[in-house]
C-alpha cells in the first residue's frame, strides 16, 4: 500500500467517524429535548414524536452524505 492510498483510507475513516459523531450529538440533543417536552406536557407526545422523527431525518442527512463520500473515497478512489 502506498502512502497516498493510506492517506485516502484515513480520510475516509475521518469522514465517516466525524459524520457519525455529529449525528450522534444531534440525535442525543434531540432525544433529550423530546424527554423534556414529554415530561412537561405528556398530552403532546404524539405531536412531539412526529416532530422528532422528521427532525431526525434532517439531522442525519449531512452525516449520511459524508458517509457516502467516504464510501466513494474507500471504494472508488483508494
Amino acid at each position: 500500500m502506498t502512502e497516498a492510498q493510506a492517506l485516502l483510507y484515513i480520510a475516509g475513516a475521518l469522514m465517516m467517524g466525524l459524520g457519525a459523531l455529529g449525528a450522534a450529538v444531534g440525535i442525543g440533543i434531540l432525544g433529550g429535548r423530546f424527554l423534556e417536552g414529554a415530561a412537561r406536557q405528556p398530552e403532546l407526545i404524539p405531536m412531539l414524536r412526529t416532530q422528532f422523527f422528521i427532525v431526525m431525518g434532517l439531522v442525519d442527512a449531512v452525516p449520511m452524505i459524508a458517509v457516502g463520500l467516504a464510501m466513494y473515497v474507500l471504494f472508488a478512489v483508494a
Binding site: A20, A23, I27, G31, F34, L35, A38, A39, P42, I45, P46, R49, F52, F53, M56, D60, M64, V67, G68
Partner: peptide, 21 residues
Amino acid sequence: NLPAKNLRYLYRCAVERLVVT
C-alpha cells in the same frame, strides 16, 4: 404515550437508518 418506549423506537430507527444507508 410512554416517553421512554417512544425514545427507544426513535433511537432504534436512527441506528437502522444508518446501517441501511
